[in-house]
Design a protein around this nucleic acid. Sequence first.
DNA 1: TTCATACATTGATGACCGTCAATATTGGGG
DNA 2: CCCCAATATTGACGGTCATCAATGTATGAA
Lengths: 116, 116
Amino acid sequence: MNLLPVLEPATDDACCAPAGTPALGAEEAKQKALVFKALADPNRLRLLSIVKAESSGESCVCDLTDPLDLGQPTVSHHLKILVEAGLLHREKRGTWAYYSLVPGALEEAAGILATL
Amino acid sequence: MNLLPVLEPATDDACCAPAGTPALGAEEAKQKALVFKALADPNRLRLLSIVKAESSGESCVCDLTDPLDLGQPTVSHHLKILVEAGLLHREKRGTWAYYSLVPGALEEAAGILATL
DNA sequence: TTCATACATTGATGACCGTCAATATTGGGG
DNA sequence: CCCCAATATTGACGGTCATCAATGTATGAA
């Protein structure tokens, strides 16, 4: 998938050999960092945890506002970030909004680390 | 490991059932978020990628400064963050500093996602 | 000891982020 | 149509972060 750098025969001087194309491209790295940015907040981790623990597979915002010590707008903000990161799915039914894990999304995030 | 919430028989009103203890505690979440904070930067992902791709298993700073479009102090700063997150190991030999992946660290980070 | 190299640290700056209060929007019920 | 409940959006504020230029530190060589 990645063209490996040419793997120089070792410069006679010392350290600092390859350079060439870095293993992970700049754009690719930026993209992958987005997922971890979404995961890099304690309250968002707790949100994911609560949604995952729910037996029904989904939680409405009021289920999520109480356990965290945060105001409702802040929780909504975090949920939006998780949705935009592709980790949560949002479905509005009546007045309520139900959030559920996107199937395989967490595994995919874990996969990024395995294939760095 | 976690005491599950009592799982109310469903309040007659509608939504908003459990509350109780959130699946992931506040302190625990804060701790786990630290690793993802370290991973939440494109340049740090690239650094990890380069170190991992190196056949010798380690890279000195000059190997890392060129591929990224960053100054040497900035690279040093990112490396420090990765070391403090427990992802990289630093060993100084002579004038050079060699960085290598901490064995199992990336897998452990991936494990956090699996056991949220 | 003096100099050059490799790397780390400091201080400053501009950008981004988490949080809240206030307000807007949407949907259901009377 | 009007009111209320649930959620989203906006604007503002304080804190953190990524980056760089300048400087400090340590190691090896002359």
